[in-house]
Simulated assay, not measured.
Amino acid sequence: MTSRGTTTNHALRRALLQLLAPGRAITTAELRTRLSDDTAFSDVTQEAVYRHLDALARAGSIRRVTHPGRRHIFWSRRPCAVSAALPQE
């Protein structure tokens, strides 16, 4: 992966973390819409958003929330989580 691709990945993950708040779970689709509306990620796909959310969840920065009987996946930021998925600046 190129340096530019890595920079873009980190920027996308930072943007996702900024959109997520502890205690409020939102869907992958809503996050993609907000990224498209509020940031420079207007061309990001829902699949790419999901991959980055999954990576952030594996790193312990966010959590995946499921609701029985609902097909949508929700995501919430962990309280006081320090992201191991992002480089320290």
Rank of each mutant, 00 (worst) to 15 (best):
S61I: 03
R63F: 11
D54L: 04
R51P: 03
L19W: 02
G5V: 11
T7G: 07
L53W: 00
P79E: 09
E89T: 15
L20C: 09
Q88L: 12
G69E: 11
V44G: 09
R70Q: 15
R24Q: 15
A25M: 06
P79A: 11
S83C: 12
L35W: 00
Q18Y: 06
A40K: 12
A48K: 08
T33R: 11
P22G: 11
R51Q: 12
A55Q: 01
T28N: 05
R13F: 00
A48Y: 04
H72M: 09
R70T: 12
G5T: 12
L16Q: 08
R13I: 00
M1L: 15
R78T: 03
L35S: 02
T66M: 10
T27N: 06
T8L: 12
R77W: 00
H10M: 11
R78L: 13
G69Q: 04
L56D: 00
T28W: 01
L17A: 03
H10C: 07
G60T: 12
D54C: 01
R77L: 09
T66F: 06
D38P: 04
A11N: 05
E89K: 11
T33C: 02
A48M: 12
A85Q: 04
L31V: 03
L35C: 01
A59E: 02
G69A: 04
L16A: 05
Q88D: 11
H67A: 08
R63I: 08
C80R: 14
Y50N: 10
R70S: 15
T7N: 13
T33I: 03
D54Y: 00
T6D: 03
L16F: 02
A25V: 08
R14S: 06
W75Y: 07
T27G: 10
A25H: 05
D43W: 13
F74Y: 15
T39N: 12
C80V: 08
L20D: 04
A25N: 01
Q46T: 13
F41H: 10
T27P: 02
S76T: 14
R4N: 11
D38V: 03
T66S: 09
S42V: 07
P68S: 14
T2E: 15
A29D: 08
H67C: 14
C80S: 13
S83M: 05
R34C: 07
R58N: 05
P87W: 05
T66L: 11
H52R: 10
L17M: 10
A25I: 02
A11V: 01
G60H: 11
F41L: 02
G5C: 14
R77S: 04
S61M: 12
N9I: 05
R71K: 04
R58W: 03
L16W: 03
